[in-house]
Nucleic acid binder design. Structure first.
Length: 257
DNA sequence: ATGCCAAACGCTGTTTGA
């Protein structure tokens, strides 16, 4: 079972690229982020035509997340993270596909920091940790996949200096991410490749792709029974170089069964 | 300190994000 995460940066702007990737890579489950479209504008027919069932949580212009399943309909658990009724941003959706629980996560960027956006990021991470603890306690196979907007270590960026004041590398952001991992989740990419440069995002600006100036912010966290089934993990890097690409590229895991 | 780029919205530019 191949489970992938892909921040598409606009599902309608990216639709040809998304369908092409689905056709070529045939992931079984896909977590999408940054749909940048409200529910009625999600191109559900095109996704169904490609062979995927879907659940989604859209928002006008910004955010928006979805979960796709090949030849199957994901069973939605919930949208939004509990704990803040004021939070109207569409950044979380959770569903069940077969025996696996999957969450599609679009964690707030948090820039500029310090400031209210950074506070919102940290608050959101606290709420994610609470939900993750509940899911962890189920002892089921769970995959928390998405754009975490956290560069976990200095090894996960092309330049520590360029990112030193960025919300993605702040000690508070990293500490919250580490607390999540410390609960017992496995960072699948690092489990398969413990060291070395692996990027999942390259800025559109300053020729970042051409310079290979990227960082690793799209992660798949596996619960213990999911981690036991981990057979492979990777980044579909070449899609970042295609026409009209997203600034992120797909990241995936292969689980046994 | 700003623009670099891209997408959405809605209109020939502005806003927002990363």
């Amino acid at each position: 079972m191949k489970i992938a995460t892909y921040n598409v940066n606009g599902i309608n702007a990216r639709l040809p690229r998304l369908i092409e990737w689905l056709d070529e890579q045939k992931p079984d489950v896909v977590c999408l982020q940054e749909l940048k479209a409200y529910d009625e504008k999600i191109p559900v027919k095109a996704i169904e035509k490609a062979g995927y069932g879907a659940v989604w949580h859209g928002q006008k212009s910004f955010n928006g997340v979805a979960i796709l399943a090949r030849d199957s309909q994901p069973v939605e658990h919930q949208i939004r993270l509990p704990g803040d009724d004021e939070d109207v941003q569409s950044r979380y959706i959770e569903a069940e596909i077969g025996d696996v629980i999957v969450a599609s996560i679009y964690l707030p960027n948090g820039n500029p920091q310090p400031g209210p956006k950074f506070d919102y990021k940290l608050d959101w991470m606290e709420r994610l940790i609470v939900r993750a603890a509940d899911l962890f306690a189920t002892e089921r196979p769970v995959v928390l996949a998405g754009d975490y907007n956290v560069i976990p270590t200095d090894e996960d960026t092309y330049s520590v200096k360029a990112m030193e004041n960025d919300a993605l590398t702040q000690p508070e952001s990293r500490a919250a991410f580490r607390r999540l991992l410390a609960m017992g989740w496995t960072d699948a990419i690092r489990a398969r490749k413990p060291s070395g440069k692996i990027w999942t995002y390259w800025d559109y600006q300053r020729g970042a792709w051409q310079r290979d100036a990227g960082f690793r912010i799209d992660h798949l966290l596996l619960s213990p029974v999911a981690a036991d089934r981990l057979r492979a993990a990777g980044v579909d890097k070449e899609y970042r170089g295609r026409e009209k690409a997203s600034d992120h590229t797909p990241v995936w895991v292969e689980l046994a069964g």
